[in-house]
């Protein structure tokens, strides 16, 4: 599968996601209309549409706020900008994405933006302090793959719709519970359907979004390996992330899927008990699995020890 095919498939998938969510929304609105009031259903649908449009327009700024990413002055961190420029030239992006810095000791990075032209990358200071140049380049390659594959677009859409569905289902459910007997209509069967539907819809939306997110991560790893012709660098970077246990302070769960590594701790989810089930709720596949996929396609084994090369922050004069 060439990258162009991958991109087109992703666009198609984005379309399907949007249609899927619209259908899901329609079902919820229908349920609300059936058991409560037809007008309420229409209002809910309109409200959801308006909210979604607002969220799409403001998503760029919202992500910056939720991650705490700061814009750079033109002369700041020039070597980092250059690195991003080189990686995006190698990726064939028409425009180099802007770089923003998240002041956080946890090594991590993310990509955001709906179109490649307005996209930007966020890099934590922790990442610059931990990664040597070669591995930092691989991480940037991963994020730039997200931009090039239109993952940022797909995931922004999925996040917004999952949010809208959760909101409306919650509202409908509350009205059903506390709305009083007068407003209820329909038979027992419709009632049961409505309760079950409103309860399950948010989870269906969430699972859909998360399964999309996990698949994108494998593709972005492979994309980075292809852009830089260096699958080992990507695997080394992932290993380094694996060994690091700090988590991002601004780790808002609603933007967790944007980062290169899950910004929240995995230890917590392991304590949840049933592993197979809890991994359905992960935004990222386990790092071990991602490293294994790279080793397999690149035909190499990672060395036991990581290279002692000096981190890129030294070159930037940050350390």
């Amino acid at each position: 599968m060439t990258l162009q095919q991958q991109i087109r498939r992703n666009r198609l998938r984005s379309g399907i996601v949007v249609v899927g969510f619209v259908v899901l929304l329609g079902i919820i609105a229908g349920l609300i209309g059936a058991v409560l009031d037809l007008r309420l259903g229409v209002v809910a649908l309109l409200g959801a549409g308006l909210y979604a449009i607002f969220a799409i327009i403001s998503s760029r700024r919202m992500v910056a706020r939720m991650t705490g990413a700061q814009e750079l002055a033109p002369e700041q961190l020039r070597p980092l900008r250059r690195l991003v420029e080189n990686v995006s030239i190698a990726a064939g992006l028409p425009v180099t994405p802007e770089v923003r810095i998240v002041d956080d000791p946890a090594p991590n990075a993310f990509a955001a933006g709906i179109r490649p032209k307005t996209s930007y990358l966020g890099v934590t200071t922790g990442l610059l302090r931990v990664m040597p140049k070669r591995e930092l380049e691989a991480v940037l390659g991963h994020e730039i793959s997200h931009v090039r594959n239109r993952d940022t677009y797909l995931m922004t859409m999925a996040t917004i719709f999952a949010g809208v569905i959760a909101l409306i289902a919650d509202l409908g459910f509350r009205m059903l519970l506390y709305g009083g007997g007068r407003s209820r209509r329909g038979g027992a069967l419709v009632m049961v359907l409505a309760v079950v539907g409103l309860l399950l819809a948010p989870y269906a939306a969430l699972l859909l979004k998360l399964s999309l997110s996990r698949r994108r991560e494998f593709l972005a790893d492979a994309g980075s390996a292809e852009i830089l012709n260096d699958p080992e660098a990507m695997a080394l970077a992932l290993r380094r992330l694996q060994l690091d246990t700090t988590t991002v302070a601004y780790a808002d769960a609603s933007v967790a899927h944007l980062w290169v590594e899950s910004p929240t701790s995995r230890v917590e989810s392991e304590r949840r008990g049933v592993m197979a089930l809890s991994s359905l709720f992960d935004t990222h596949p386990p790092l071990e699995q991602r490293i294994a996929a790279l080793e397999e396609s690149g035909g190499f084994r990672l060395p036991e020890r990581l290279s002692p090369d000096e981190p890129f922050a030294v070159e930037l004069g940050l350390a």
């Binding site: 996990r214 698949r215 012709n229 699958p231 996929a293 396609s297």
Partner: peptide, 11 residues
């Protein structure tokens, strides 16, 4: 030589 990176199995 252009790198040939196979996309990993879909999970």
């Amino acid at each position: 030589a252009v790198p040939q990176v196979a996309f990993p199995p879909q999970t």
